[in-house]
Write a protein that binds this DNA or RNA. Sequence first.
DNA 1: TTTGCAAATGCAAATCATTTGCATCTGGAA
DNA 2: TTCCAGATGCAAATGATTTGCATTTGCAAA
Lengths: 137, 137
Amino acid sequence: MEIVYPKNIKWTKQRKAVYRILHETTEPLTATQIFAALQKEEIENLALSTVYRILTTFEEQKLVNRSAFMGEETSRYELNRGEHTHYAVCLDCHKRVPLEHCPFGHLNLERETEGFTITAHKLELYGYCTKCQKKHE
Amino acid sequence: MEIVYPKNIKWTKQRKAVYRILHETTEPLTATQIFAALQKEEIENLALSTVYRILTTFEEQKLVNRSAFMGEETSRYELNRGEHTHYAVCLDCHKRVPLEHCPFGHLNLERETEGFTITAHKLELYGYCTKCQKKHE
DNA sequence: TTTGCAAATGCAAATCATTTGCATCTGGAA
DNA sequence: TTCCAGATGCAAATGATTTGCATTTGCAAA
Protein backbone atom coordinates (compact mmCIF):
# COMPACT_ATOMS: atom_id res chain seq x y z
CA MET A 1 0.00 0.00 0.00
CA GLU A 2 1.39 3.32 -1.09
CA ILE A 3 2.13 5.78 1.66
CA VAL A 4 0.74 9.25 1.04
CA TYR A 5 2.84 11.96 2.64
CA PRO A 6 1.01 14.94 4.13
CA LYS A 7 2.05 18.26 2.65
CA ASN A 8 3.52 21.37 4.26
CA ILE A 9 6.96 20.01 4.97
CA LYS A 10 9.96 19.02 2.91
CA TRP A 11 9.91 15.26 2.50
CA THR A 12 13.54 14.22 2.66
CA LYS A 13 14.45 10.57 2.47
CA GLN A 14 15.13 10.56 6.23
CA ARG A 15 11.69 11.93 6.96
CA LYS A 16 10.05 9.45 4.65
CA ALA A 17 11.94 6.64 6.35
CA VAL A 18 10.91 7.70 9.86
CA TYR A 19 7.35 8.14 8.69
CA ARG A 20 7.36 4.69 7.15
CA ILE A 21 8.62 3.02 10.32
CA LEU A 22 5.85 4.67 12.31
CA HIS A 23 3.36 3.74 9.64
CA GLU A 24 4.33 0.07 9.84
CA THR A 25 3.75 -0.33 13.56
CA THR A 26 0.91 0.11 15.99
CA GLU A 27 3.14 0.46 19.04
CA PRO A 28 4.46 3.82 20.18
CA LEU A 29 8.20 3.79 19.46
CA THR A 30 11.11 5.57 21.05
CA ALA A 31 13.51 7.66 18.98
CA THR A 32 16.19 5.06 19.59
CA GLN A 33 13.97 2.23 18.38
CA ILE A 34 13.20 4.09 15.19
CA PHE A 35 16.88 4.86 14.73
CA ALA A 36 17.80 1.20 15.27
CA ALA A 37 15.17 0.01 12.81
CA LEU A 38 16.53 2.33 10.15
CA GLN A 39 20.13 1.36 10.70
CA LYS A 40 19.25 -2.19 9.73
CA GLU A 41 18.01 -0.88 6.44
CA GLU A 42 19.05 0.99 3.40
CA ILE A 43 19.54 4.28 5.16
CA GLU A 44 23.21 5.04 5.55
CA ASN A 45 24.68 7.77 7.69
CA LEU A 46 21.50 8.55 9.54
CA ALA A 47 22.07 10.47 12.76
CA LEU A 48 20.06 9.89 15.91
CA SER A 49 19.83 13.64 16.35
CA THR A 50 18.14 13.83 12.98
CA VAL A 51 15.53 11.34 14.14
CA TYR A 52 14.86 13.55 17.15
CA ARG A 53 14.58 16.63 14.97
CA ILE A 54 12.24 14.85 12.59
CA LEU A 55 10.03 13.66 15.43
CA THR A 56 9.88 17.17 16.86
CA THR A 57 8.85 18.48 13.46
CA PHE A 58 6.26 15.73 13.04
CA GLU A 59 4.86 16.56 16.45
CA GLU A 60 4.58 20.25 15.59
CA GLN A 61 2.82 19.30 12.37
CA LYS A 62 0.48 17.06 14.39
CA LEU A 63 1.60 14.07 12.37
CA VAL A 64 2.62 12.16 15.49
CA ASN A 65 1.64 12.04 19.14
CA ARG A 66 4.23 11.98 21.82
CA SER A 67 3.64 10.15 25.06
CA ALA A 68 5.36 8.12 27.73
CA PHE A 69 4.50 4.91 29.49
CA MET A 70 4.02 4.99 33.22
CA GLY A 71 7.34 4.51 34.94
CA GLU A 72 9.27 5.07 31.72
CA GLU A 73 11.30 8.19 31.28
CA THR A 74 11.68 7.94 27.51
CA SER A 75 9.30 9.60 25.07
CA ARG A 76 7.41 7.45 22.63
CA TYR A 77 5.94 8.50 19.32
CA GLU A 78 3.10 7.11 17.29
CA LEU A 79 1.44 8.20 14.11
CA ASN A 80 -1.57 10.41 14.68
CA ARG A 81 -4.11 8.33 12.83
CA GLY A 82 -6.89 10.74 13.55
CA GLU A 83 -8.88 8.63 15.94
CA HIS A 84 -8.92 9.80 19.51
CA THR A 85 -7.66 6.73 21.31
CA HIS A 86 -7.01 5.55 24.81
CA TYR A 87 -5.46 2.27 25.78
CA ALA A 88 -5.32 -0.22 28.56
CA VAL A 89 -1.69 -1.21 28.96
CA CYS A 90 -0.56 -4.48 30.53
CA LEU A 91 2.14 -3.77 33.08
CA ASP A 92 3.62 -7.18 32.44
CA CYS A 93 3.64 -8.02 28.72
CA HIS A 94 2.90 -4.44 27.59
CA LYS A 95 -0.01 -5.57 25.49
CA ARG A 96 -2.18 -2.60 24.63
CA VAL A 97 -5.90 -2.73 24.10
CA PRO A 98 -7.53 0.34 22.59
CA LEU A 99 -10.76 1.50 24.20
CA GLU A 100 -13.64 1.70 21.81
CA HIS A 101 -15.13 4.73 23.44
CA CYS A 102 -13.42 7.62 25.13
CA PRO A 103 -14.59 7.43 28.73
CA PHE A 104 -14.73 11.23 28.70
CA GLY A 105 -16.87 11.83 25.70
CA HIS A 106 -19.91 12.69 27.74
CA LEU A 107 -18.47 14.16 30.90
CA ASN A 108 -19.06 17.77 31.73
CA LEU A 109 -16.40 18.81 34.17
CA GLU A 110 -16.88 22.54 33.96
CA ARG A 111 -18.11 22.98 37.48
CA GLU A 112 -15.38 20.76 38.86
CA THR A 113 -12.60 22.56 37.05
CA GLU A 114 -13.60 26.08 38.03
CA GLY A 115 -14.19 27.22 34.50
CA PHE A 116 -11.11 25.73 32.89
CA THR A 117 -11.34 25.33 29.15
CA ILE A 118 -10.10 21.79 28.74
CA THR A 119 -8.16 21.40 25.52
CA ALA A 120 -6.51 18.05 26.04
CA HIS A 121 -6.42 15.12 28.34
CA LYS A 122 -4.15 12.23 28.91
CA LEU A 123 -5.56 8.96 30.09
CA GLU A 124 -3.83 5.67 30.52
CA LEU A 125 -5.18 2.60 32.20
CA TYR A 126 -2.70 0.12 33.63
CA GLY A 127 -3.28 -3.39 34.77
CA TYR A 128 -2.81 -7.00 33.78
CA CYS A 129 -4.26 -8.76 30.79
CA THR A 130 -5.94 -12.12 31.35
CA LYS A 131 -2.87 -14.07 30.27
CA CYS A 132 -0.47 -12.30 32.62
CA GLN A 133 -3.02 -12.35 35.39
CA LYS A 134 -3.04 -16.16 35.25
CA LYS A 135 0.73 -16.40 35.09
CA HIS A 136 0.92 -14.82 38.53
CA GLU A 137 -1.74 -16.89 40.28
CA MET B 1 2.05 20.86 63.43
CA GLU B 2 4.18 17.86 64.20
CA ILE B 3 5.03 15.63 61.28
CA VAL B 4 4.49 11.95 61.97
CA TYR B 5 6.87 9.75 60.01
CA PRO B 6 5.55 6.46 58.67
CA LYS B 7 7.45 3.42 59.91
CA ASN B 8 9.33 0.73 58.01
CA ILE B 9 12.27 2.80 56.93
CA LYS B 10 15.26 4.37 58.62
CA TRP B 11 14.48 8.03 59.18
CA THR B 12 17.73 9.85 58.59
CA LYS B 13 17.85 13.62 58.80
CA GLN B 14 18.05 13.80 55.00
CA ARG B 15 14.90 11.72 54.63
CA LYS B 16 13.07 13.79 57.20
CA ALA B 17 14.10 16.95 55.39
CA VAL B 18 12.88 15.71 52.00
CA TYR B 19 9.67 14.49 53.60
CA ARG B 20 9.13 17.87 55.23
CA ILE B 21 9.60 19.79 51.98
CA LEU B 22 7.02 17.58 50.31
CA HIS B 23 4.75 17.96 53.31
CA GLU B 24 4.87 21.73 53.09
CA THR B 25 3.77 22.02 49.49
CA THR B 26 0.78 21.02 47.41
CA GLU B 27 2.63 21.14 44.11
CA PRO B 28 4.47 18.15 42.70
CA LEU B 29 8.18 18.98 42.93
CA THR B 30 11.17 17.85 40.93
CA ALA B 31 14.20 16.32 42.63
CA THR B 32 16.17 19.44 41.76
CA GLN B 33 13.58 21.72 43.33
CA ILE B 34 13.64 19.73 46.52
CA PHE B 35 17.41 19.78 46.50
CA ALA B 36 17.47 23.55 45.98
CA ALA B 37 14.97 24.14 48.78
CA LEU B 38 17.13 22.15 51.18
CA GLN B 39 20.33 23.87 50.19
CA LYS B 40 18.84 27.15 51.38
CA GLU B 41 18.35 25.60 54.78
CA GLU B 42 20.17 24.02 57.61
CA ILE B 43 21.08 20.89 55.70
CA GLU B 44 24.77 20.95 54.84
CA ASN B 45 26.46 18.64 52.41
CA LEU B 46 23.33 17.17 50.97
CA ALA B 47 23.87 15.42 47.64
CA LEU B 48 21.42 15.56 44.78
CA SER B 49 21.96 11.84 44.26
CA THR B 50 20.78 11.29 47.81
CA VAL B 51 17.57 13.16 47.04
CA TYR B 52 17.02 10.86 44.09
CA ARG B 53 17.66 7.78 46.20
CA ILE B 54 15.33 9.02 48.89
CA LEU B 55 12.58 9.72 46.39
CA THR B 56 12.98 6.27 44.88
CA THR B 57 12.70 4.73 48.33
CA PHE B 58 9.67 6.86 49.17
CA GLU B 59 8.05 5.77 45.93
CA GLU B 60 8.67 2.10 46.70
CA GLN B 61 7.17 2.63 50.14
CA LYS B 62 4.18 4.33 48.51
CA LEU B 63 4.90 7.49 50.47
CA VAL B 64 5.07 9.58 47.33
CA ASN B 65 3.61 9.51 43.84
CA ARG B 66 5.77 10.12 40.85
CA SER B 67 4.39 11.80 37.77
CA ALA B 68 5.28 14.16 34.96
CA PHE B 69 3.52 17.09 33.42
CA MET B 70 2.62 16.91 29.78
CA GLY B 71 5.52 18.07 27.67
CA GLU B 72 7.90 17.98 30.61
CA GLU B 73 10.59 15.37 30.69
CA THR B 74 11.39 15.69 34.38
CA SER B 75 9.77 13.54 37.06
CA ARG B 76 7.78 15.23 39.79
CA TYR B 77 7.01 13.88 43.22
CA GLU B 78 4.23 14.65 45.64
CA LEU B 79 3.27 13.20 48.97
CA ASN B 80 0.73 10.42 48.73
CA ARG B 81 -1.91 11.91 50.97
CA GLY B 82 -4.22 8.99 50.57
CA GLU B 83 -6.91 10.69 48.56
CA HIS B 84 -7.15 9.58 44.99
CA THR B 85 -6.79 12.83 43.14
CA HIS B 86 -6.87 14.10 39.59
CA TYR B 87 -6.15 17.61 38.47
CA ALA B 88 -6.91 20.03 35.73
CA VAL B 89 -3.66 21.76 34.84
CA CYS B 90 -3.46 25.18 33.19
CA LEU B 91 -1.06 25.02 30.27
CA ASP B 92 -0.23 28.68 30.76
CA CYS B 93 0.13 29.53 34.46
CA HIS B 94 0.32 25.88 35.64
CA LYS B 95 -2.46 26.44 38.12
CA ARG B 96 -3.83 23.07 39.22
CA VAL B 97 -7.39 22.43 40.28
CA PRO B 98 -8.11 19.10 41.93
CA LEU B 99 -11.21 17.28 40.76
CA GLU B 100 -13.65 16.55 43.52
CA HIS B 101 -14.73 13.25 42.04
CA CYS B 102 -12.72 10.79 40.06
CA PRO B 103 -14.39 10.70 36.65
CA PHE B 104 -13.77 6.96 36.67
CA GLY B 105 -15.32 5.99 39.91
CA HIS B 106 -18.34 4.48 38.27
CA LEU B 107 -17.08 3.29 34.93
CA ASN B 108 -17.03 -0.38 34.17
CA LEU B 109 -14.54 -0.92 31.40
CA GLU B 110 -14.23 -4.66 31.66
CA ARG B 111 -15.80 -5.41 28.34
CA GLU B 112 -13.81 -2.70 26.63
CA THR B 113 -10.49 -3.86 28.00
CA GLU B 114 -10.85 -7.52 27.11
CA GLY B 115 -10.71 -8.70 30.69
CA PHE B 116 -7.82 -6.58 31.87
CA THR B 117 -7.60 -6.18 35.60
CA ILE B 118 -7.07 -2.47 35.88
CA THR B 119 -4.81 -1.63 38.81
CA ALA B 120 -3.97 1.98 38.09
CA HIS B 121 -4.80 4.82 35.82
CA LYS B 122 -3.26 8.09 34.94
CA LEU B 123 -5.48 10.98 34.05
CA GLU B 124 -4.51 14.54 33.41
CA LEU B 125 -6.70 17.28 32.03
CA TYR B 126 -5.02 20.20 30.31
CA GLY B 127 -6.46 23.49 29.33
CA TYR B 128 -6.61 27.14 30.29
CA CYS B 129 -7.97 28.59 33.50
CA THR B 130 -10.36 31.52 33.24
CA LYS B 131 -7.65 34.08 33.91
CA CYS B 132 -5.27 32.81 31.23
CA GLN B 133 -8.14 32.30 28.85
CA LYS B 134 -8.93 36.04 29.06
CA LYS B 135 -5.31 37.04 28.70
CA HIS B 136 -5.26 35.51 25.26
CA GLU B 137 -8.49 37.01 23.93
C1' DT C 1 22.92 3.40 77.46
C1' DT C 2 26.36 1.40 74.49
C1' DT C 3 27.59 -1.46 70.52
C1' DG C 4 27.59 -3.37 65.83
C1' DC C 5 26.40 -3.46 61.34
C1' DA C 6 23.22 -3.14 57.48
C1' DA C 7 21.68 0.50 55.29
C1' DA C 8 22.22 5.45 53.99
C1' DT C 9 25.08 9.19 52.40
C1' DG C 10 28.57 12.30 49.88
C1' DC C 11 31.20 12.81 46.08
C1' DA C 12 32.65 12.14 41.62
C1' DA C 13 32.25 9.84 37.61
C1' DA C 14 29.18 7.23 34.46
C1' DT C 15 24.85 6.76 31.81
C1' DC C 16 21.15 7.85 28.99
C1' DA C 17 17.91 10.71 26.61
C1' DT C 18 17.77 14.77 24.19
C1' DT C 19 19.63 19.14 22.22
C1' DT C 20 22.70 22.21 19.80
C1' DG C 21 26.56 24.49 16.91
C1' DC C 22 28.33 24.37 12.66
C1' DA C 23 29.84 23.05 8.15
C1' DT C 24 27.77 20.66 4.34
C1' DC C 25 24.01 18.89 1.61
C1' DT C 26 19.43 18.79 -0.78
C1' DG C 27 14.19 19.16 -1.76
C1' DG C 28 11.36 21.68 -4.42
C1' DA C 29 9.82 26.46 -5.87
C1' DA C 30 10.97 29.63 -9.46
C1' DT D 1 18.40 23.58 -14.25
C1' DT D 2 19.38 26.84 -10.56
C1' DC D 3 19.31 28.45 -5.97
C1' DC D 4 18.70 28.78 -1.15
C1' DA D 5 16.06 28.07 3.11
C1' DG D 6 15.73 24.47 5.52
C1' DA D 7 17.52 19.64 6.61
C1' DT D 8 21.26 16.64 7.89
C1' DG D 9 25.67 14.48 9.95
C1' DC D 10 28.80 14.67 13.35
C1' DA D 11 30.61 15.71 17.60
C1' DA D 12 30.24 17.95 21.63
C1' DA D 13 27.07 19.97 25.24
C1' DT D 14 23.30 19.56 28.39
C1' DG D 15 20.28 17.86 31.90
C1' DA D 16 18.19 14.29 34.44
C1' DT D 17 19.15 10.28 36.78
C1' DT D 18 22.18 6.43 38.37
C1' DT D 19 26.15 4.10 40.27
C1' DG D 20 30.75 2.73 42.60
C1' DC D 21 33.00 3.22 46.62
C1' DA D 22 34.77 4.86 50.93
C1' DT D 23 32.69 6.79 55.02
C1' DT D 24 28.95 7.72 58.22
C1' DT D 25 24.81 6.73 60.94
C1' DG D 26 20.03 5.10 62.48
C1' DC D 27 18.36 1.82 65.36
C1' DA D 28 17.85 -3.09 67.00
C1' DA D 29 19.95 -6.03 70.20
C1' DA D 30 22.69 -6.57 74.20
